[in-house]
Write a protein that binds this DNA or RNA. Structure first.
Lengths: 144, 144
DNA sequence: GTCGCCCCTCCATCTCAGTTGACGAAGGCA
DNA sequence: TGCCTTCGTCAACTGAGATGGAGGGGCGAC
């Protein structure tokens, strides 16, 4: 990770380095280009693959992203910003935690209420927690 | 799933339909475009968003994909993987609701409460909705 | 040697992703 | 009523994404 490891170029480079034909050297740009085309994917030029790997081009279209990801056997999400994706995935994880509770319903219906009403409801929730003897974490949050 | 549900246009359309400002109608193309730009994202034109939704353009670049996904609070994989799309669609409304910090807070804290308490809170939420003139249940969506 | 082949690199070119600007319809306000 | 704003829609333009082909180095065969 000498350069910024988050860049698209770094990821493409990593794919070339790691996923190899059978055991020998790396795939050549031309091989990849031809394989993608033959697999029914969009046309992609060897030169362009080189540009992506070197970082000269870093904003490919959806179809090319799909094609390259498909060839190397990784999900297209692989190429996207990790921090942002993780943040959203974390939210999704939270949702599954709330899966079968009526909590879902409450959240859905609370959406759109005024700030003051939300505050009141939050207070009520907090009070009920207290009454039911649930943990009252006064520690706001542990630093990241 | 009237049209082909797997297309990018269908997905973008679905996002516009489901994730709404606070309660009212859909986001306008211009609102989304401006919000993306203001969030430090790439420049994107309202017209282009319209084209994506209508299916006139369906091959956006990585950066624009990221921007749109980011705005609607879904991972970029939403636009690629159909399985992922379904998974997220199932929870989109909730995901949207939880974007509001206070609502999220309530959901988190309500988690673990007894069934009876949750019921009481749900009732209270419903009553407040009524008082604030927000749409009541029973109408999933009014057909045109 | 030198010919042929494959690969990476570079540059000129073209295509299409993305923007700009304009138009009509549908409200809000005086 | 008329003006002004906001919105979705459309057509034409601009420029970045993507391509094709040429140059150049390495390696084996003849």
């Amino acid at each position: 990770m000498s350069e910024d490891a988050g860049t698209l170029a770094a990821k493409v480079d990593h794919l070339f380095r790691t996923v190899r034909p059978h055991d020998g050297g790396e795939y050549s740009f031309d091989e990849v280009a031809r394989a993608i085309r033959d697999k029914g994917g969009p046309t992609i030029s060897a030169t362009y693959l080189w540009q992506l790997r070197k970082g000269i081009r870093d904003n490919p279209t959806k179809r090319h992203l799909e094609a390259v990801a498909g060839f190397f056997g990784v999900p297209p999400a692989y190429f996207f910003d990790d921090a942002e994706t993780e943040r959203i995935d974390a939210q999704l994880a939270l949702l599954t935690a709330l899966r079968d509770a009526p909590v879902r319903q409450i959240a859905l219906r609370a959406n759109g209420l005024s700030a003051r009403s939300l505050e009141a409801i939050a207070d009520m929730v907090e009070r009920v927690r207290e009454l039911e003897g649930l943990p009252q974490p006064e520690s706001p949050d542990p630093p990241p």
